[in-house]
Design a protein around this nucleic acid. Sequence first.
RNA 1: GGGCUGCUAGCUCAAUGGGCAGAGCAGCGGACUUUUAAUCCGCGGGUUCAGGGUUCGAGUCCCUGGCGGCCCA
Length: 502
Amino acid sequence: MTEQTPVPVDVTDDLPEQMRVRREKRERMLAEGTEPYPVGYPRTTSLAALRERFAELPTDTATGETVSVTGRVIFLRNTGKLCFATLREGDGTELQAMLSLDRVGAERLDEWKRLVDLGDHVGVTGEVITSRRGELSVLAESWELTAKALRPLPVAHKPLSEEARVRQRYVDLIVRPQARQTVRTRATVLRSLRDSLHGRDFLEVETPMLQLLHGGAAARPFVTHSNALDTDLYLRIAPELFLKRCVVGGIDRVFEINRNFRNEGIDSSHSPEFAMLECYEAYGDYNTMATLTRELVQDAARAISGSHVVAHADGTELDLGGEWRSVTLYGVLSEALGEEVTVDTDMARLVQYAEKHNLAVDPKWGPGKLAEELFEELVVPRLHEPTFVRDYPIETSPLTRAHRERPGLAEKWDLYVMGFELGTAYSELVDPVVQRERLVAQAQLAAKGDDEAMQLDEDFLRAMEYGMPPAGGMGMGIDRLLMALTGLGIRETILFPLVRPE
RNA sequence: GGGCUGCUAGCUCAAUGGGCAGAGCAGCGGACUUUUAAUCCGCGGGUUCAGGGUUCGAGUCCCUGGCGGCCCA
């Protein structure tokens, strides 16, 4: 719903000089009958193809071959009768264009100098040569402006401020090779994940993002409204309950890669919308999911770096190879506390430990939740190498099967790397009666005002009552996977992260 | 939520203790037929985030707000 129609204003008044000048050049072209934004340019080759074909061309050589190329002007070096420009095309390949008086003529050379600014898109047709300095170039016979840039590019040799990079990613992409590389790395990782899953007979599905009830995880949802149904809807916090319906329906190996939305904090490792991989495997359990997850991550590492060792932006390396460490929650917590703690340790003892380590205790927490909080406080920041932390208290895992051997625990692991949680997996709870008990308990929490608790999803329970096979399920944050693979902050791995209005 | 900190030309940043708001790149004018962030000569360019206050005088000090960043809970 538009609250007000934008009022057209004459923006040409009162502009900074550089924008005014560029607008005037556009006007001048139109007045002279030249199109500043023509429909295209008949290019015959890409810059990358030329670079590849003529990689070995010796210095100061003319090939006799005429080509047409296009690109954005990123450097200009104009002299009296011979002008140089560096063009760059979408994949980042750069190539020099040369415009000489004797080839293009006085008029077109003058117009080049008069009209072309840094940032403009141009098309150039001419002979492939190398310059006297050995630079592979197209020596123009003719040229056209293909899109006039009305705003000046920022300085190419200084990094944009962090805020400008995020708010104007398009500019960041123009001036910073690392920004372009990150987009490609992310695409490579996504393709690798899909390839790895397809190779293991998993089927990709898309389940609802707009949901009538919110569930599948513990998180605060975004609320929106359907006019047609005249009802509030939730943006999903997880696809879990729908993917399990798929497994009930016989899609034995199923996955989804898409966005979840959580109405929570925004910081260097949390974004309100984030991409997630979730997958389920009938007759799998949390052990098969651990193997699968490790292989998915290792395949992705190999896809971007050729090995299990990935290079981070800060120059360090992270080795994701091998079997990965596997510990139990209470095991590492006991180690950190220096005293034996189990799922049976009573609340009073745990509170003592919390006080000793200056951890504020929420009175709503049970002993399981408190143990997890202690773990997050004392252990997680030190988990740099990939580590599976297994066997969580069942109290905090309402959708997880009880541990097959140890009462009070659930068959769940969290995968930690670089001090953050990368993924989680369960041996899924498939007994519809127990499932109902747990969800009713959640719904009662929700009714008492816990806005992270799930609502009672009768349709999900009905599905479970038709019989879901034993299954393992796993979820992994895509943005965080990129962080682990590249060492970048979450705002760099997400192309257009949410920012406050300017 | 708390603490610290930043916001100045298109971009990146300076500006002594409160005393004429500057540089590099970019831009404009000129020179240059082999440049590589070209070079040389000349010139312009500012609501110092917004609003209020103190002061003869505020980019600078104080208050409120906005948008970032870092640290802590």
